[in-house]
């Protein structure tokens, strides 16, 4: 086999392998095995597996559900599928100060486990930021924004 033929055989083989790999990743069932987080509804569906195992749950912090006790470092809030979730919200207990951007109505991903009581015990609370980048509106004082940064 001449070296040019050999190179082109390798080219076709490499492109084929790449195309098949990409096809398997994008269309194959890999998505089901690579789950970064479950939504509250999925946690309910997999209730038996969620207790005791370390899992992540992603959702939206429900309005009027946040309770932060600075003396005991106890943070409690409820996570739902969407901003207003009446069907499947799950109460989360964490022992840490709320992250800077944590607030009602924001997306969060919590890492921890479900307890027998049907609540989520979180070791880590992560806050999701959307791809929306906006200038502050008139009502927002720049000083407040700087303040949020200084505490970091």
């Amino acid at each position: 086999m001449s070296s040019a033929t050999q190179r082109r055989v390798f080219l076709v083989a490499a492109l084929l392998v790449a195309a098949v790999a990409l096809g398997v990743i994008s269309m194959g069932g890999i998505g089901e095995n690579l789950v970064y987080f479950w939504t509250p509804a999925q946690v309910h569906e997999n209730a038996s597996k969620a207790v005791g195992a370390t899992i992540r749950m992603g959702g939206v912090v429900q309005a009027d559900s946040v309770d932060w006790q600075p003396d005991t470092q106890a943070l409690t809030f409820t996570v739902g599928e969407s901003a207003v979730d009446t069907a499947t919200p799950i109460t989360v207990h964490a022992q840490s100060a709320p992250p800077q951007m944590f607030r009602e109505g924001i997306g969060v991903v919590v890492e921890g486990t479900m307890t027998d009581a049907g609540t989520f015990r979180a070791d880590k609370v992560m806050v999701k930021h959307s791809n929306e980048y906006r200038a502050p509106t008139d009502g927002m004082a720049p000083a407040d924004l700087y303040a949020t940064v200084e505490e970091l």
């Binding site: 990743i25 789950v35 992603g58 992560m126 959307s130 791809n131 980048y133």
Partner: peptide, 24 residues
């Protein structure tokens, strides 16, 4: 392409791609 589409294919903490519409 997997990196590019990862935020669309799988649930993720990372935000979606930035577009003209998503920022001032």
């Amino acid at each position: 392409p997997v990196v590019y589409f990862s935020v669309k294919w799988w649930a993720s903490l990372h935000q979606q791609a930035s577009t003209r519409a998503s920022m001032d």
